[in-house]
Amino acid sequence: MRAFILRSVFQRLVLLLIVSIMAHSVIHLAPGEPSAVDPSNPRMKPEDIAKIRAAFHLDDPLYMQYAYWMRDLMSGELKSFKDSQPVLGKIWRRFLNSLPLFLCATLLVWTLAFPVGIQAAIRRGAVYDRTTTVVAYTLISVPGFFLAYLVILWVVNTFGVPVIGLKTFGMEHADPLFRTMDRVWHLVIPSLIFASGGVAVLSRYVRSQMLEVIGHDYVRTARAKGATEDTVIYRHVLRNALLPFVTMFGLLLPGLIGGSVIVEQIFAWPGLGRLGYEAILARDFPVILTLNFIAAVLTLAGTFLSDILYAVVDPRIRTGLQGDA
């Protein structure tokens, strides 16, 4: 097991290096200049632009730019092109904003998808199953931003309460309990929108996974033994159907960065997704690259975690690994 962990950590480090180099070159290959370097601004002379380019190392060869980026990233002194603020501090603050949204949406996805999917599997072909199928496919196919607009307009026009932003504007002096609840309310709509697609997809997985396991021999055996239907479904079927989801759990991590761009944009949520999106528009290379790097780390950590979790929950894999070691 230890050898497996060491080997996979090493492989991932190599992969991370390759990913970071590729991302670096791809981003620099894309057309466009950092917004501070603005040749179409008549107020800026070519000398000024040359000075800014030099300060950003934009005229150095790509591998040198990569080295500068890595050096500054590792020393924690990487600065954004846009406002010269330390990149890591910026990302950390945005991360704290994105985290509640991500947690709330993830909780919704994982707690809702299972009961919905299980019921659909049990009542396969019944009205409930068909309804959830239609709803799920609708949610999957309706673009998130469109759904968000509809929901926002409906909520604002019907209930007359604010839904965008982290909190109601101008509530700084209210009672802390009110402020907390206000923050929770502002989480509700964006995380429901954020989660809607996830619930739809995941409940479909749960359903098909359940259906697959229900057909197995040991389920028939359990039923034949006289176990109650609930015991059969929740002890025998669900447990075995859960296995593949363990892997999905690890892959949730990178969603922290990329999953929320549209929701954050529409709901004026100052999170990581928006930070990345705006950095791309301004060609703020240090921020784009660092976010990309963190996303890569999270993805690799996620797959690593899945591997380990899988080994933990599935004895077959565990023994296989031991035999291998």
Partner: peptide
Amino acid sequence: LLLQSYLWVPTY
């Protein structure tokens, strides 16, 4: 838990 927070939010 999420929806009850609506009751605490001031309307526009």
